[in-house]
Amino acid sequence: MAELNLGLLKQLCETPGIAGREERVATVVQQALAPLVDEIRRDPLGNVIAIKRGKGGPRVMIAAHMDEIGFIVRAIDDRGFIRLQPVGGFDPRVLPAQRVRVWTREGDGLLGALQATVKPPHLQQAGDDKSVTINDLFVDLGLPAEQVKARVEIGDMVTLDRPCEVLGPTVLSKALDDRVGVFVMIEALRAVKEHVVEIVAVATTQEEVGLRGAQVAAFGIDPDIGIALDTTIAGDVPGFEPEGTVTKLGAGVGIKVFDTSQLPNPALVQHLRAIADREGIPYQLEVLPRGGTDGGAIQRTRAGVPTTTLSVPSRYVHSVNEMAHLDDIAAAVRLLTRFLEEAHTGRYIPGA
């Protein structure tokens, strides 16, 4: 298999796109997918839908979401400080003193400091509340109030300002959730050879606010098989008990067994495991006690779809420094590629 195109991964991670505002990322995805497929389009919710025709086999929908967690501008006060409305679930503890970009209607990304309405240590008194909530956060653009109000509007997108960096065998970035899944999807379509199934690759929108893009895309596509691609928790760090790690970095792609959005199809899980065992692809069985993926929306579309999720283990999920292992990413690409080449052989309806 060809070497991973890390330049594309970096471009995907660094392009801004919160839920409902994925158009910049969609352009990058569409440009990358167009040479690999027979047909490509966007639907009314902004999903990028790419079709690679097969030879009369079943229709396989692959879904990876483009949106990252972030904010929109909720208010601008008389001093030019910006208050925020979260779009997706950030832990407020990781946010104070970060840098952000406020994306204006002209397309400018204004750099600012994300701060909290908490006194600095020099001025704190005994008993002062040092906890931080989302409502305590504000953005300081370092500009006069009149300039802020002239350039920034209510509803403008705000994203964290962190580059994608390779650290030896790992990659560190904002928005690996789920730009790395989009990357796996693109790389698998680049690598796939002979296949009978019709492949419908969907870069979905609005996953972080309720799996909305996957829901409408799956309804229109009416797939026979669904594979979601996402990140999952790698709890192999201080603070986790061994039984609660979910997955470990560098131990292989996650094959979903359970999350709170879906109960994956057992026969589909077993087929993926059999391919991985045969091909020597490292994998981990993933039980995620809380959380979900686009697979939950695909599974419940129309009359039901056999579905599971392939996961890239990630440390520090929903933070500005998500970390994944390049070997796990490569394993996800290999497993998805091999599955697409033989998905027509599977039988996934219970009792059929």
Rank of each mutant, 00 (worst) to 15 (best):
D136V: 04
R290D: 03
T301C: 15
I82G: 01
A331I: 02
R42I: 10
A297T: 11
G7S: 13
R93C: 00
P86G: 04
V192I: 12
L8C: 03
K149Y: 04
V87M: 10
I51G: 07
A113W: 10
R59T: 15
L249H: 00
A2H: 03
R338E: 13
E3N: 09
L285Y: 13
G244K: 09
A175I: 11
V192Y: 01
S311H: 10
L45H: 07
E198P: 05
V312Y: 10
G254M: 06
A218N: 08
L4G: 01
V73S: 08
H325L: 04
L285P: 01
A214S: 14
V94Y: 11
V48T: 15
D294T: 13
L229Y: 09
G280Y: 11
I49N: 10
R83K: 14
A75T: 06
D236I: 02
E322G: 09
R53F: 05
L8D: 02
T159P: 05
T301H: 10
E208S: 03
R290V: 11
F138Q: 01
L340G: 09
Q30N: 10
D177N: 08
V158Q: 02
V100S: 13
R190K: 15
A97H: 10
G181N: 11
P163T: 12
L229G: 11
V305A: 02
D230F: 13
R79C: 00
L12I: 00
G109R: 05
G109F: 08
P120Y: 03
F81Q: 00
L111N: 00
I227L: 15
G210L: 07
K55M: 14
I49Y: 04
V180E: 14
R300A: 13
V246I: 15
L229W: 10
L172R: 13
L229F: 12
E342R: 14
I221P: 08
L326W: 11
K130Y: 00
E208T: 04
Q125T: 01
N135C: 02
V196C: 04
L229H: 10
Q85R: 13
G291I: 06
V305Y: 09
L211R: 07
G250L: 04
V287P: 01
I134W: 03
K248R: 15
R41A: 14
R24C: 06
V197D: 06
G213E: 14
G127V: 03
I82Y: 00
R212L: 14
G109M: 08
H325I: 10
A267I: 02
L335F: 07
E198A: 12
L8F: 00
S311Y: 07
L114G: 03
I134Q: 09
Q299C: 13
L335N: 07
Q85K: 13
N135Q: 15
D108E: 15
A150M: 01
E286D: 13
D38F: 05
M1C: 00
M185W: 10
G142T: 02
G20C: 04
F90Y: 14
P44N: 05
T27G: 14
Q115W: 00
V158M: 02
G20N: 03
N265I: 11
P96H: 11
S261P: 00
L9R: 04
T159W: 11
A297M: 09
M323Q: 14
D294P: 05
